[in-house]
């Protein structure tokens, strides 16, 4: 474990807690894409299948349970909670996210490190995580401006990915054989998707005005 990865995990944890607290306290999910949350639930479900078969540390197992629990809670809140689901922006959140799932599954069947059930699903979760934010970014573009909690959510997610890249650089230089192209490339693609959002987010902070994303 290194400081970059710990900071990355904490930033990731903060992002899901910000979202969960927002939805739980103000009982609203306005501006949040249910499609992105569903994709993240699938990402965690397919990535943490090894939670029962391999144990790395208390920290690792605990964090997996937290991410699984929070992502599924957010989806259930948005879909079924009597008050929250009314604030879900169904008409605007129209990204056909199932069109992302199939290509990621096919790609995982083609490109993976080992052709085993767990490994292919784990690789699928990497590819899916890379594109899971797309429905949320599209929704932000559509609704033009965003409330600052959703902005903070996306900002923290981007920060977690950036810190993970620093973690991979650190591990590459400190651990022999630490070469994982699949993880690195999908992680890089994911981080680049946040790049333009970061630009507009930083602009809105600098000019201290409401975040307006270009159409």
């Amino acid at each position: 474990m290194n400081i970059f990865r710990l900071a990355g995990d904490m930033t990731h944890l903060a992002s899901v807690l910000v979202l969960l607290l927002k939805i739980h306290t103000i009982k609203s999910c306005a501006g949040v894409s249910l499609k992105t949350q569903e994709l993240y639930a699938i990402v965690f479900a397919t990535r943490y299948l090894d939670i029962f078969t391999s144990f790395y540390s208390i920290y690792n197992t605990l964090m997996k349970l937290v991410f699984l629990g929070s992502s599924f809670s957010i989806v259930l809140y948005m879909k079924y909670h009597k008050t929250v689901h009314r604030s879900y922006d169904r008409e605007q959140d129209t990204f056909r996210h199932w069109f992302l799932v199939l290509p990621c599954l096919l790609l995982a069947l083609l490109i993976h490190e080992k052709f085993t059930f767990l490994e292919v699903l784990w690789t699928f979760s990497l590819y899916l995580e890379a594109v899971a934010i797309l429905p949320q970014l599209v929704l932000l573009q559509r609704t033009r401006n965003i409330d600052n909690l959703t902005g903070q959510y996306v900002f923290l997610l981007g920060g977690y990915r950036g810190l993970y890249i620093l973690n991979w650089i650190y591990r590459y230089f400190t651990e022999p054989h630490f070469v994982h192209w699949i993880t690195w490339i999908s992680g890089l693609v994911q981080t680049l998707l946040y790049a333009d959002f970061f630009f507009y987010y930083s602009q809105s902070w600098k000019n201290n005005k409401k975040l307006q994303l270009p159409a």
């Binding site: 990731h12 090894d50 790395y56 991410f67 993970y164 054989h177 630490f178 994982h180």
Partner: peptide, 10 residues
Amino acid sequence: EHEENIKDEL
């Protein structure tokens, strides 16, 4: 052994 060391990441 080496490919396992990425699985300890979240």
